[in-house]
Nucleic acid binder design. Structure first.
Lengths: 349, 349
DNA sequence: GTGAAAGCGCTAACAT
DNA sequence: ATGTTAGCGCTTTCAC
């Protein structure tokens, strides 16, 4: 198992072939599991591989096969390109980012495809991503963003390059995506609040330009209407902690006797809890609070935050599956998969 | 700018050369910014590139240059290989993971080197990483882990493969790393608590097998000793929320009149705050609490958590710098850079 | 079942 | 200053 070669010189197929006393082609066949190779030879090739410590060079393979063996995982989150460092970090501390990327990596792992991670914060970034894929350096892209109007999906569409998004794009463009049934998640929250006997329920919405926020709001309203509460006082935030606090304050002014709150994400729900407590109301006794995302933070507050959970890792796995399907059959039509959320019940509701 | 070629066939250097009426070599020179090319020709090559939509193929370039143009970013966090999904996610929701990886990507971005992201959760994963780099598919690795005894660094060392770690490894092996001055960070916390007039200060340590936890503890003790508090009651946690709560309870039993707490990370600090409030003590009036990491959560609690902050993005940039230096001059000795932390003051202390 | 040979797209001497 | 040429390490017909 020792390294014989001088540092910097890696063993090649040629080396293995020489050691095994066969041709490069045969070694290649063994390496790639082609079955029309005699057993004896197969043996000796394997031991030659072990002896030399051979590892295939992907660049050479890509060149020969015309397949990159690589996909790009593109992440973008914060809206504007940032000069400071703070805003941009939102990407990565955002609950869903890490979970999704982790899920993608795990789903990709058995496929012998490796993920190149790229940021898409600026137009230059996006151009870089496009060039990368157009140059044949990746076979497709997996795109996870919190920025609903990112132009990248359209660019991919026009270039007819394989892409799967996490979350439905705002514009109705033909693109593969995976999403959660936001309306159903909201309905879960509504049903839970009602089952808790809450009768004066309000909601803090996300920015209505974001499809997910839209759906969570309308789903919540519809569900509550089915349960008899025809009108749901609503304040709109932007998913940030601060906006959640402000929304809660204005709702409190409008509906002092409210006893249930559904916020479109956990940050805003947390902020709402804070405002409620400052106002002398107890959570969950006086007011029940439910968030959305089931982020790491939700478990770290007192009371813990009841929240709607998206099955991130399954969703990530689906993204990979769709992309691989598309690569295997490029004529395949775009597809989407919608997952059902669940409710994680903690102390707040 | 239109695509002329049938889908699937990408323009090559050859195509550009033909359109521009020059040789491949000349196009290559222009593409790579070699300066010994006449202006006229340069012009026509550029427009030929634009006309064809040419993008270099990295596989071919790698093969020719013998340089991968790729580094692998390895992340590992959760201790044992996991069958469920929960534990493993720790990686990604951990405050530092996203910040560091984000920083790495941004530092790599201008370098025309792209990062392949790999997990190192199991031995098979580690083997995969090793094979990847040994096969010449990446020029080196950037390793960020919360697992102090990961065997990967040693494997890289033995194979004499370029590696830079985030955080000093437990074993004193010769490896490049970037870290923060944990002792100084702890001293910052100590000084702040003392300046607040706290006289009965305790600390919640991380697992002592982790160098960072060791340093934070000893740094805190030493600093407090310099300020006159010779003995610091200590409870040891494992960085988890639950362990922090338990540690706080036992400290409370031991030192009922404590008025200051320094926890080795934010999760434990948060848990401590919760236990303190349950016990009827107010934060910060009765007890001041300081955490470590300045994670996203720290800003989302009430009161906000005062915490020691590591300059993650600068640290990530340093990792990249060190790796590139090593690649440029492989004989370079291992080096390390230690950054100074700062204190982010919020409501809790 | 195995080998010989061509070629993937690019770079880097070496010629001119 | 530009072109010619020979590979980089691998896969893949096509012969044998």
């Amino acid at each position: 198992m020792a390294d014989r070669s001088p540092p910097g010189t890696r063993p090649t197929l040629e080396d293995v072939a020489r050691v095994a006393g066969v041709s490069r082609a045969t070694v290649s066949r063994v390496v790639n599991g082609k079955r029309d190779v005699g057993n004896e030879i197969q043996e000796s090739v394997r031991s030659a591989i072990a002896a030399t410590g051979y590892v295939p060079n992907r660049a050479a393979r890509s060149l020969a096969t015309q397949r990159a063996g690589t996909v790009v995982v593109v992440v973008s989150g914060a809206g504007a390109p940032v000069d400071g460092t703070t805003t941009t970090e939102v990407d990565f501390t955002d609950p869903f980012f890490g979970r999704v990327v982790g899920g993608l990596l795990r789903a990709l792992r058995p496929q012998d495809i490796n993920p190149v991670l790229m940021l898409a914060e600026t137009d230059a970034d996006r151009a870089r991503v496009m060039a990368f894929v157009r140059g044949g350096n990746a076979e497709g892209a997996l795109f996870v963003t919190t920025q609903p109007d990112d132009p990248l999906p359209e660019m991919f569409g026009e270039a007819r390059l394989p892409l799967v998004m996490f979350a439905r794009p705002v514009k109705p463009i033909p693109v593969n995506f995976v999403d959660v049934a936001h309306r159903d998640g909201a309905a879960l929250a509504a049903a839970h609040l009602v089952s808790l006997g809450r009768r004066s329920i309000v909601t803090i919405s996300g920015p209505l330009a974001v499809p997910a926020a839209q759906d969570r709001l309308s789903g919540f309203r519809d569900a509550l209407a089915r349960h008899g509460q025809a009108y749901v006082p609503t304040a709109t935030g932007d998913f940030s902690f601060e906006s959640g606090a402000e929304a809660m304050r204005s709702l409190l002014a409008e509906v002092p006797d409210l006893d249930g709150v559904f916020a479109a994400n956990d940050h805003m729900a947390l902020a709402a809890m804070g405002v409620l407590e400052e106002s002398g109301r107890r959570v969950p006794q006086d007011v029940a609070v439910i968030g959305f995302d089931d982020s790491a933070i939700a478990a770290l507050t007192r009371p813990g935050l009841t929240s709607v959970r998206q099955p991130f890792e399954e969703m990530a796995a689906a993204m990979v599956r769709i992309l691989l399907g598309q690569l295997a059959d490029p004529t395949r039509r775009v597809s989407s998969v919608i997952f059902e959320p669940t409710l994680t019940v903690r102390g707040s509701a």
